[in-house]
Computed example of a mutant assay.
Amino acid sequence: MAYQPYQTYQNNSVTTATPGELTLMLYNGSLKFIKQARKAMEQKNHQQKNTMIQKTQDIIRELMVTLDQEAPITKQMMPLYDFAYRALTMANVHNDVEQLNQAEEIMTQFRDTWKEVIKQERIRQHGKGVQSS
Rank of each mutant, 00 (worst) to 15 (best):
H126E: 14
N101A: 12
V93G: 06
Q57D: 02
T16H: 06
R38F: 00
Q102G: 04
T16E: 00
F83H: 13
D112E: 13
M90C: 06
M77D: 05
T16R: 09
D96N: 15
K32W: 02
T74P: 03
V97K: 08
H46R: 00
A17W: 07
L63P: 04
E105N: 15
Q57E: 04
L22P: 13
T51V: 07
E98L: 07
R122P: 00
E121Q: 15
Q131E: 15
E98D: 15
N92P: 08
M52K: 04
R86D: 14
H46T: 00
N11G: 08
D82L: 05
I34E: 03
T113S: 15
Q48L: 11
T74A: 14
T108E: 03
R61L: 15
D96H: 14
S30V: 06
K75G: 01
S132K: 03
R124N: 14
A37I: 04
Q120N: 09
Q54K: 10
L31T: 07
E62K: 05
F110L: 14
V93H: 10
I53C: 04
H46F: 01
T51S: 05
Y9R: 12
Q109C: 05
Y27V: 09
Q57V: 02
K39Y: 01
T108S: 11
T74C: 08
Q57F: 00
P19T: 08
T56C: 07
N50F: 01
Y85A: 05
M78H: 05
E116C: 02
L67K: 07
K44S: 07
T56E: 09
Q102H: 15
V14E: 04
M77I: 15
D68A: 02
G29T: 07
N50A: 00
W114G: 15
V97I: 07
Y9D: 08
M107I: 15
L24C: 06
P5T: 01
A17G: 13
E70C: 08
Q7H: 08
T66Q: 06
E105Y: 15
E105Q: 15
L22G: 11
K75Y: 05
S30G: 13
I34A: 03
E104A: 13
Q102D: 13
G127R: 11
L26F: 08
F33T: 02
N50P: 00
K75D: 06
N12G: 00
E21M: 14
R124S: 14
S30I: 07
Q48H: 12
V93A: 11
P5F: 03
P5A: 01
Q36R: 10
R122K: 14
M41H: 07
F33H: 05
L31Q: 13
S30T: 09
L63Q: 11
N101R: 12
K55I: 01
Y3Q: 13
I53L: 10
I123Q: 14
Y6N: 05
A84Q: 08
F33R: 01
V65M: 13
P79Q: 02
Q36D: 12
A71T: 03
V117T: 14
Q4L: 11
H94T: 06
T74G: 03
Q43F: 00
T108W: 04
G20K: 02
A40W: 06
D68R: 04
R111I: 03
Q57M: 09
H126W: 03
Y81W: 10
L26A: 04
E116A: 12
P19W: 01
V14Y: 09
D96C: 11
A17F: 09
T89Q: 12
L24H: 04
T66W: 05
V130W: 10
